[in-house]
Design a protein around this nucleic acid. Structure first.
Lengths: 133, 133
DNA sequence: GTTGCATCTGTAGTTACTACAGCATTCATA
DNA sequence: TATGAATGCTGTAGTAACTACAGATGCAAC
């Protein structure tokens, strides 16, 4: 395996911040890379793949803990599709709940904004509804 | 003004955690209350109103900074409805963006979950799509 | 030789709380 | 009146997932 990628190049290829890459390493979610003679990190294709995976998962809203579970499963070699499904379905459920909660907020906010006359007077239905007597 | 409410009573009336009330005080978002002879916090009706306001705002997803802005406006005495509208509309926009982003995640996740056979075999389309070669 | 970029380590800051530890006080009850 | 439970106090540390430095080092190019 040739490990030739600097952290900067890895960052550019994956779209992950340099500091974030080091952070992932410290968190144990990205393996400790080898180093050049002067102590700089050197990455290979496997690292690139793994970091991309982490990035994809993060974009889908998985927590780092969930990502770690997923990685551990894959690394273990004998994971089942069922196990992956469980983690993903649980996360999908959380996302749905968040959407639901935000949608409720949205409708209240929209209602308030609409009621508001945007006038120059210090009499605002938004404040009235929140700061009521 | 009679200030007779203990922090525990205030917490129960508003649904806000005791530690959170103290936290709000430290953040300067809730005024420093008077104290009993033994040093315990004493709250009045105005505090109750303000804490409820903060709580309502938080439930609508406003950040503490936004809540502070809102409170400062009201406290200043000569705020306009326009100013309140601006803060609220900006927040509503943020909420909409969050919903949009989460909805995208949701559809990808749902697609993955659906594709997954939930089988007992170590071959999972979820992993394949994320951890691709 | 010096300029400038990339990288290094380590620490602190962000948001909005929550969870103690260890102590003081107050209240209800025996 | 004694005592045990409940309440409150301060102050600190932990949570999630980074981000933003500061200050040092390395390396290639001109």
């Amino acid at each position: 395996m040739s490990k030739t990628l600097s952290i900067g190049v890895l960052a550019k290829h994956t779209g992950v911040n340099i500091e974030t890459i080091r952070f992932y390493e410290k968190q144990g979610i990205l393996p400790v890379p080898s180093r050049s003679s002067s102590g700089r990190r050197l990455y290979g294709g496997e690292d690139l793949k793994r970091l991309s995976f982490i990035h994809q998962c993060r974009k889908l809203g998985f927590s780092l803990k969930e990502v770690e579970s997923l990685i551990n499963l894959v690394d273990s070699g004998d994971y089942t599709c069922e196990q992956v499904h469980e983690i993903t379905a649980a996360h999908a459920k959380e996302v749905k709940q968040k959407i639901k909660s935000l949608t409720k907020m949205e409708s209240v906010l929209d209602g308030m904004v609409e009621q508001c006359s945007r006038g120059k007077v210090p009499d605002c239905p938004i404040i009235d509804s929140l700061y009521g007597d």
